[in-house]
Design a protein around this nucleic acid. Structure first.
Length: 316
DNA sequence: TAGGCCATCTGGTCCT
DNA sequence: AGGACCAGATGGCCTA
């Protein structure tokens, strides 16, 4: 096994001042003292009472029974101390894990500070997201938005499905979860229901379009069905043929990379999700004007939604 | 009130 | 010996 990452232990007092511990709320601090540590406090009280009983013969006279015994032997104290240190390390470790999970929450679709995805749903959504992106890249064409969302929601709980749909400004009523936990569509929603005409400020791209015109609907169902004919993320991993490697992520930029190819970051910005930072544009969310969000499938060359719009939906 | 989610404690195991 | 990791147990909080 490789070298493990080691979080240096700091004593509990120092921990409270450490950067790590700064994320502790007071409530959490209080909670961390509940349970066994409180029990220990109670134990100490009990010990004190025992000691007092030892010293009281019942008649109010104090008996001296030789040197007062230590409450715990040195070994016992040492074991106790080591246990507390281990607990503190474990807390730190779990906080690190939670920090990482929080980072993951921020990069999967549907991030909300107020309505956080649970841990398990975050992991499921992330897995679906990776799978959907991989499928997109391996297919070499832009996916259907609906199929993409369907993939994202695969195996998620109904509330999370609703949340994702809501984040994507889809009508959650169009999603149903069958008994297998798979997402299906009860009916085919109208385009307008799925893609309400976005506010002008939602998109910088819209400013370059004729913002007075609603987006033209197009038949995306055919493409989503064919797109989703492939295996589900539950049953298989994306298939990569030939010399292709699985999609690589360079600073959040996903790409399929041939083994002998240099990574062209500019080209990969085509697939940039939120982190393609185009110099001079001032926003990490912006991509080059020519690039399209992977979801932005326009089989008939009819752009209907920009990455900015979708990102706004994701992070709204 | 039941169930889901979470933080924490704890003891065991593995590794250095 | 000591640290990292893991899984089970426990109790608190929140919501339907």
């Amino acid at each position: 096994m490789g070298t493990m990452l080691t979080v240096p232990f700091e004593d509990p007092d120092m921990m409270r001042e450490s950067q790590f511990a700064s994320s502790f709320s007071r409530q959490e601090d209080a909670r961390s003292l509940t349970g066994a540590e409180l029990k220990e406090t109670e134990d100490d009280t009990t010990d004190r009472e025992d000691d007092e009983r030892d010293e009281d013969d019942g008649g109010g006279l104090l008996k001296k029974k030789g040197p007062r015994k230590k409450k715990f032997s040195d070994g016992h104290e040492r074991v106790k101390m080591r246990r507390q240190e281990a607990n503190a390390r474990e807390r730190s470790r779990m906080h690190g894990l939670n920090d990482a999970l929080e980072s993951l929450r921020k990069v999967v679709p549907c991030y909300s500070k107020t309505q956080k995805l649970s841990k398990i749903e975050t992991l499921r959504l992330a897995k679906n997201y990776i799978w959907a992106l991989s499928e997109t890249l391996s297919a070499g064409k832009r996916p259907d938005l609906l199929a993409f969302v369907q993939t994202l929601c695969k195996g998620l709980s109904q509330p999370t499905t609703n949340l994702v749909a809501g984040c994507l400004q889809l009508n959650a009523r169009n999603f149903l979860t069958d008994q297998n936990g798979d997402v299906s569509f009860s009916n085919r929603p109208s385009y307008d229901a799925l893609y309400p005409y976005p506010n002008a400020e939602m998109s910088t791209h819209s400013a370059t379009r004729d913002s007075a015109k609603p987006f033209r609907p197009y038949n995306y169902y055919a493409s989503y069905e064919s797109y989703y004919d492939s295996a589900s993320p539950e049953s298989a991993s994306p298939h990569f043929d030939g010399q292709m490697s699985p999609p690589m992520n360079y600073n959040g930029i996903f790409s399929l990379k041939k083994h002998d190819e240099q990574v062209d970051y500019n080209k990969n910005c085509h697939y940039g999700m939120r982190y393609c930072n185009v110099p001079g544009r001032g926003s990490v969310y912006r991509v080059s004007p020519d690039s399209h969000f992977p979801y932005d499938l326009h089989p008939r060359g009819q752009p209907f939604q920009s990455q900015d719009e979708l990102n706004t939906g994701f992070h709204n």
